[in-house]
Design a protein around this nucleic acid. Structure first.
Lengths: 132, 132
DNA sequence: ATCAATTGCGTTATGCTATAACGTGTGCGA
DNA sequence: TCGCACACGTTATAGCATAACGCAATTGAT
């Protein structure tokens, strides 16, 4: 699932996410792109759908937001399960991968014959700077 | 954080969740409780807030729904991180705990000096019956 | 070359999820 | 008895996401 060349809207949305300090909601992205002609949520959601598919953007389920993948250029889907630590104070997101966690979860799903499609791991709390 | 006696609304909401086959959205709960006098979303959300606090109900972030804890009577918060496998076909939810996963995530947060408050692990896919 | 299928795009409308803000009543300890 | 905390009810609003329609551009098989 490597990313094909992005369309205009996809590139605009991706650009906003990449330049952002932290995760953004779809409507925040929309507002940032009004000057570029965006007028409706669907324009954002449709672009996001593709960017998620290509693996260059992640969705943070617990805060209804989106963030650019921390591994530009690479195919993030191949790193196994992606985990996130989200600071509830400053909004910063750290993305990481842990193969041992993947392994444990896969063991569990295998044992239950559960066919996993998409796994979410999100840790909310305070980053080092904000916890001080 | 053991559960104090539930108020009327809390008991009603909890009862609906416990008798349900799978997770329910707040608005679905509301509809099921109209006969009991519920008229507004806040009545549900306020009850859910407490039930979540008491640990007798879990929120499934990835599907904006709520489910009764699978360990009635016990204090679920003491089991460590709760993980869920959610069947996208039949809606059934399996709740489980894996201390090794907890450890790995805690190791990571310790290393980053990240103060974890709430961790979400949700696996979406197909249960054994539905995958067949 | 042409037709059909696919994909992206724009727009309007709508539905679902969640909370703000205000007021009421009740119980309980100082 | 006063003040406080808490549950509750109601109205309104904010925030998140998609349905359904139509148009334009691209591609690719015949």
């Amino acid at each position: 699932m490597n990313a094909p060349p992005l369309t205009k809207n996809q590139a605009l949305v991706f650009d906003v996410l990449e330049k952002a300090e932290g995760p953004l909601s779809a409507y925040t992205i929309l507002d940032k792109l009004r000057d570029h002609g965006f007028r409706a949520p669907l324009q954002v959601y449709r672009a996001l759908e593709k960017l998620l598919e290509y693996g260059v953007v992640h969705r943070l389920e617990s805060i209804n937001s989106f963030v650019a993948c921390a591994h530009p250029g690479e195919n993030c889907h191949s790193h196994g399960i992606v985990a996130f630590a989200i600071c509830e104070s400053c909004g910063q997101v750290m993305e990481f991968h842990d193969h041992e966690v993947d392994h444990r979860l896969m063991d569990w799903t295998r044992g239950k014959k559960f066919k996993a499609e998409k796994t979410t791991i999100e840790i909310r709390g305070l980053c080092e700077a904000c916890a001080a």
